[in-house]
């Protein structure tokens, strides 16, 4: 089994996070916003899973090899709930305002 070098993994994860942040900051469509968020989450999951198998982690007394993978599962669950809530908000917004454009939902401002 070939191992992915650490540098490559970090570059991949950073790229995903950058794409995600770019999406969050530039997209005005609520659904695209959620998708961008998911991409960011996946970058985090990827990192957790990768470092769980890292030798320094496996041999450390304070670390269990399954910890990273367990966290990955938790984050996936978290992402699923978050999307569920997010989609519910999208539906509500669409029903009230007739749009999914987040730039138009500005009633949070004072």
């Amino acid at each position: 089994m070939t191992t992915l070098p650490v540098g490559d993994l970090v570059a991949l994860a950073s790229g995903l996070v950058a794409i995600s942040i770019f999406g969050i900051l530039t997209r005005r469509n609520f659904i695209l916003l959620l998708i961008a968020l998911e991409i960011g989450m996946n970058a985090a999951i990827l990192t957790f899973v990768y470092f769980a198998a890292f030798p320094q982690c496996v041999t450390a007394a304070t670390c269990h090899p399954l910890t990273g993978q367990a966290i990955a599962v938790v984050v996936i669950g978290l992402a699923a709930t978050e999307v569920a809530v997010g989609l519910a908000i999208v539906l509500a917004l669409h029903r009230i305002r007739g749009t999914t454009n987040v730039a138009e939902a500005t009633t949070l401002q004072l």
Binding site: I21, I24, L25, T26, R27, R28, L33, V102, A103, A105, T106, T107, L108, Q109, L110
Partner: peptide, 17 residues
């Protein structure tokens, strides 16, 4: 300062970032 309170979600995200 109150002008940064635009109410637009993306702006707040930008502040967080």
């Amino acid at each position: 300062m109150r002008r940064i309170q635009s109410g637009v979600v993306s702006d707040y995200a930008a502040y967080v970032v």
